[in-house]
């Protein structure tokens, strides 16, 4: 694992890759996102941290089209995607590894990965499989095994790998460390860093704020549907209230 946090490499010429502009999302009557504005520059790892129910997952689902905002706009590479359906956004270049992994538990690892490349030309799948399995050697060992029989960590790897199969330019990761042992958490985060170094922009939702801030360039802190703090990962990590609330320090 590299110890130093990588430096942001943002081409300022084209504007941010992803921009949420005062987004309000509801579940029925529940006002989950109450005006969230965030930006993600190309090449960055940006993390959203916050407590349960702060709206982190809702934010990701709003971006990937699984939910649509009632107010505000979501811009991806300059175009408004607030109303675009999820399946369409996969083609546009947004990959989403949803919360709770949601792998196809009765399909084999290989079939899961093929499903991830559903939007792509079937001829391109081979090299893509190769690339993803190089990133996750464990999946190669288990290629014919049923998804549901994998261990928790392997399932998480499969979820990330599956999202990568569509070759997204922006990868949304929802709680990749959830329920994993400390060693596996380390592994997953070093893979996230690797994916980013290969050129994929990442928006990462995490409860494990320590690890997330370690890998991210910038961070947003969400609280009850609002962004309460934004800044470079280092700044956020050194913020007093963040240290108290999320990093478990007095």
């Amino acid at each position: 694992m590299t110890a130093t946090a990588p430096v942001a490499t943002a081409p300022a010429t084209r504007g941010p890759m992803l921009m949420l502009d005062d987004v309000h999302t509801y579940y029925g009557h529940i006002h989950a996102l109450q005006g969230v504005s965030i930006e993600v520059e190309q090449g960055e790892v940006v993390t959203l941290i916050g407590a349960n129910g702060a709206g982190k997952t809702t934010t990701l689902k709003t971006i990937s089209g699984l939910l649509h905002p009632r107010e505000g706009r979501v811009l991806f590479e300059g175009s408004d995607i607030s109303r675009t359906a999820a399946h369409h956004l996969v083609r546009t270049g947004i990959g989403h590894a949803p919360e709770g992994r949601r792998i196809f538990s009765r399909l084999s690892v290989e079939e899961n990965l093929q499903m991830g490349a559903f939007t792509r030309n079937q001829k391109e799948i081979g090299p893509e499989l190769e690339r993803v399995m190089t990133l996750f050697p464990r999946l190669r060992e288990r290629v014919n095994q049923q998804g549901g029989t994998l261990s928790g960590g392997e399932q998480q790897m499969l979820a990330i790998a599956r999202a990568l199969m569509s070759r997204p330019r922006l990868l949304l990761l929802d709680e990749p460390s959830l329920g994993l042992s400390p060693i596996l958490v380390q592994q997953i985060f070093s893979i996230i860093r690797e994916i980013n170094e290969q050129g994929t922009t990442i928006l990462l939702v995490e409860q494990n704020a320590q690890q997330a801030l370690n890998v991210a360039h910038r961070a947003y802190v969400l609280q009850t549907g609002h962004v309460v703090l934004a800044g470079s990962a280092a700044d956020v990590a050194s913020n007093e209230s963040v240290r108290k609330a999320y990093l478990g320090e007095d």
Partner: peptide, 16 residues
């Protein structure tokens, strides 16, 4: 098959 297994995951993988 994907929809039968998990509809949300199917949508997140680009299936209409």
């Amino acid at each position: 098959m994907a929809i039968r297994e998990d509809e949300l995951a199917a949508a997140a993988n680009g299936i209409n």
